[in-house]
């Protein structure tokens, strides 16, 4: 039988990359959502700001985050490569093509949905990630009375203080950190941004309802017993719970002001 090309130069190998990076990004979403639920705590953003510091300074998490950025890039680049290849496979299109008769809309428009998500990721990261890493957010000091658990927060004057400290001083826990929470509150005053976030989460839902189960099909895992479970998780967790959870954040800040 013929010689065959190396794994990654085949169409199947490229799909394997899409599948693995896609699933990795899915697991990230779970962690990101659970972490960000701290935005809903009624504590002037203390837990959230503390968490933001941890996520950006704990080495293993930093390593994983670089893996994550790489995965996003690879997923997008391979999507482009595969799409160009697939377009070439049909140079002359049909005058009439009834895709809706045989397949779901989102399964045929993963590239479009993915593009919306890519624009979203760039917007999202420049709003928060970039600002956080480039000292474009203010600092805040929390004093928590360890006996009564009451917390008072004071904004620190710009330029007067930088860095992160957490210590106990005479029954008071003092935390000084970057106030990303404030940036979140501020950003979500803008209804255009809020609307874009909600739309992007809609795109995320449709992207993952197809993407999650599709990733397993590509890996070759289609099993009478497990495929329905995968489909269930794809629809309810990745298609409903996660997008709604994320969309709730901008809506919460917009309407609570």
């Amino acid at each position: 039988m013929n010689k065959s090309k190396p794994l990654l130069s085949s169409t199947l190998g490229k799909k394997l990359i899409m599948s693995l990076t896609g699933l990795f990004l899915c697991t990230f979403l779970i962690v990101h959502l659970i972490g960000n639920l701290q935005l809903f705590y009624n504590d002037q953003g203390k837990a959230f700001n503390d968490y933001a510091h941890f996520m950006t300074h704990f080495t293993p998490i930093k390593v994983v985050s670089y893996l994550l950025y790489t995965s996003i890039v690879i997923h997008a680049v391979y999507a482009l490569v595969i799409t160009i290849h697939n377009k070439k496979a049909r140079p002359i299109g049909y005058a009439v093509y009834r895709g809706s008769a045989n397949s779901a809309w989102n399964s045929r428009n993963m590239g479009l949905l993915g593009t919306v998500l890519l624009v979203f990721i760039v917007t999202h990261m420049s709003n928060f990630w970039w600002k956080y890493h480039n000292d474009a957010v203010p600092y805040i000091e929390y004093r928590t009375n360890l006996a009564t658990h009451e917390t008072t927060a004071t904004e620190l004057i710009a330029g007067e203080y930088t860095g992160y400290v957490k210590y106990v001083d005479n029954d008071f826990e003092i935390l000084k950190a970057k106030d990303l929470y404030k940036q979140v509150q501020f950003a979500f005053q803008n209804w255009i941004l809020v609307a874009f976030y909600v739309i992007a989460m809609g795109a995320l839902s449709f992207h993952l309802i197809h993407g999650f189960k599709s990733a397993f099909q590509t890996l070759g895992w289609d099993h009478k017993k497990y495929a329905p479970i995968i489909r269930f998780i794809g629809i309810w967790l990745f298609g409903v719970v996660i997008p709604i959870g994320f969309a709730a954040m901008p809506l919460y800040f917009y309407f609570s002001n």
């Binding site: 794994l7 199947l12 394997l16 697939n86 045989n102 397949s103 399964s107 099909q217 289609d222």
Partner: peptide, 30 residues
């Protein structure tokens, strides 16, 4: 082109070849 798992093939196949074959091919190949 490469498969994006839309399932259009299975829906249009005149003899009902199932998508699970594609999962099997992926498995065999990998």
């Amino acid at each position: 082109g490469s498969c994006t798992n839309t399932g259009a093939c299975e829906a249009e196949c005149p003899v009902g070849i199932k998508l699970t074959n594609i999962a099997r091919l992926n498995r065999e190949y990998f």
